[in-house]
């Protein structure tokens, strides 16, 4: 139940160029804002082969999405990567259901002041406005690492657990393991700039007319 915006093309295109794609689109938040038309236009403009496309409500509902993943298993199998257009929660749900597939997001989720929303049970999104899931194998570093680190773990991980909460897995160890499995460890060598805290929905809405 969050507000999303299409990522800049320059950020998405290099990640997907020449790949066979399966596409998930979420419509769950259309009462808030989901850039349905822009996503449609963007997907239509892609030259890449699209093995299948699932458009559904509430990609944040894991059980529900699980059924879809089953239904589309052949199309997903045939794709090199799965591209998700949804908020950060939806992408994390898809990525958690497809452990050995590359799952990328095509959206940034924006901060909505004072918005409480429905919280999905398994995954959280802090609406950081510059979704990092494409660097972190679909595991959100903002909500899963208490320090919100972007460039790898702190030194405090003990036996794969977080220094802040020994019951919780260290997000960065999970990210590492998943990227290793996907053969994508080189993603981690990129140095990410600090978060842009000026990204929020008010700024976005003021640039955009006709948003409900």
């Amino acid at each position: 139940m969050l507000v999303t915006q299409l990522k800049p093309e320059e950020e998405v295109l290099p990640k997907i160029s020449g790949k066979r794609l399966f596409i998930f689109e979420c419509l769950g938040c259309k009462e808030l804002y989901f850039p349905k038309e822009e996503v449609g236009k963007f997907v239509d403009s892609l030259k890449e082969e699209i093995t299948g496309r699932a458009i559904l409500d509430y990609l944040c509902n894991r059980e529900f999405v699980k059924a879809y993943v089953g239904e589309y298993s052949k199309e997903i199998e045939g794709a090199d990567l799965v591209l998700v257009f949804s908020c950060g929660v939806g992408t994390q749900v898809v990525s958690s259901l497809l452990e050995s597939k590359l799952v990328y997001t095509g959206c940034d989720t924006l901060y909505l002041n004072g918005f409480q929303g429905l919280s999905a049970r398994n995954f959280n999104c802090n609406q950081c406005g510059q979704c990092y899931l494409n660097y972190t194998a679909g595991i959100c570093p903002i909500t899963n690492c208490p320090k919100g680190l972007l460039n790898g773990p702190c030194g405090g991980t003990k036996d794969g657990k977080c220094e802040v909460d020994p019951e919780a897995d260290c997000a960065w160890v999970l990210i590492y393991k998943r990227l290793e499995k996907l053969g994508k460890l080189d993603t981690l060598t990129e140095i990410l700039s600090p978060r842009d805290y000026s990204k929020n929905i008010t700024e976005y809405l003021s640039q955009k007319e006709g948003v409900k």
């Binding site: 320090k147 919100g148 460039n151 702190c154 600090p194």
Partner: peptide, 24 residues
């Protein structure tokens, strides 16, 4: 350094910052 999390110390309820990380 990145720094330890605040809950490890003697002001566990204070605000952790981590605006940057050790690399940035």
């Amino acid at each position: 350094l990145t720094g330890d999390y605040v809950t490890l110390g003697d002001h566990p309820e204070t605000k952790p910052v981590f605006d940057l990380d050790s690399v940035s």
